[in-house]
């Protein structure tokens, strides 16, 4: 675990009725509030909308949050949104964790509010547990050598080399045989145009 004191903020989303329709989001929020290291738990109607994001940023500042847990839709949809959001508030984007309480909870347990709420609580608890061990990560910047190699000088390699070179890049075209051309050089006329190959 990281040395600093943990200050986790939890944001539970109603998603209109998409989540709140089959999960008791207020109970989930209250549950989250009572868990260790959680300093604030907020319920939003639409967390991904601007007001929801503003709320996250405001709380990061106000409560000096160093981890953010969003319980809402799938991270495959909005992980980037919330990562961007917390980094605008000065937090490293990798200090975000999401609990999927929509696609993998409210929508698949439409008729069992109690079990769905229990599942959402567990999902939030698991997210907080993971968040405790998260640390800031950096995406690395890799410099690029502005040269390309094309291996094989048949029609495909020739075309690729010409396109790259015309686009301004230096190209090495590596051909095993004494001449480029490949199979096409051996053809007489070619379909569908029936014209010469070379």
């Amino acid at each position: 675990m990281v040395d600093e004191e943990l200050r986790i903020g939890v944001f539970v989303c109603d998603c209109g009725l998409n989540i709140a329709g089959s999960v008791d989001t207020e109970e989930v929020r209250r549950f989250a509030e009572g868990l260790p290291d959680v300093v604030v738990a907020v319920r939003n109607r639409y967390t991904c909308a601007d007001p929801g994001q503003e709320e996250i940023k405001k709380n990061i500042e106000e409560y000096k949050l160093n981890r953010v847990v969003v319980a809402s839709c799938t991270p495959l949809l909005h992980e980037k949104t919330f990562r961007d959001c917390i980094s605008e508030a000065g937090l490293n984007p990798y200090l975000l964790e999401m609990a999927n309480i929509r696609e993998q909870c409210s929508w698949v347990h439409l008729h069992d509010r109690e079990a769905a709420t229990q599942k959402a609580k567990d999902a939030v608890k698991m997210a907080i547990a993971r968040a405790r061990y998260m640390s800031p990560e950096e995406e690395i910047k890799i410099p690029v050598t502005d040269k390309a190699m094309v291996i094989g000088g048949g029609i495909a390699g020739i075309q690729a080399a010409l396109d790259l070179a015309d686009a301004g890049h230096q190209v090495y075209l590596v051909e095993k045989q004494p001449s480029i051309g490949g199979i096409m050089a051996q053809l007489d006329k070619t379909f569908p145009t029936m014209d010469c190959s070379i």
Binding site: Y94, E137, E138, E139, I140, K141, I142, P143, V144, D146, K147, A148, G154, I155, A156, G157, I158, Q159, A160, A161, D163, L164, A167, H169
Partner: peptide
């Protein structure tokens, strides 16, 4: 083959033009 070559050259150009690229965190 020619279509694919154009696509490969273009995909390759995207990287070469960028100067630097961002790697996985």
């Amino acid at each position: 083959s020619v279509t694919q070559a154009g696509a490969a050259a273009s995909r390759s150009s995207i990287i070469l033009n960028a100067g630097t690229i961002t790697g996985e965190a």
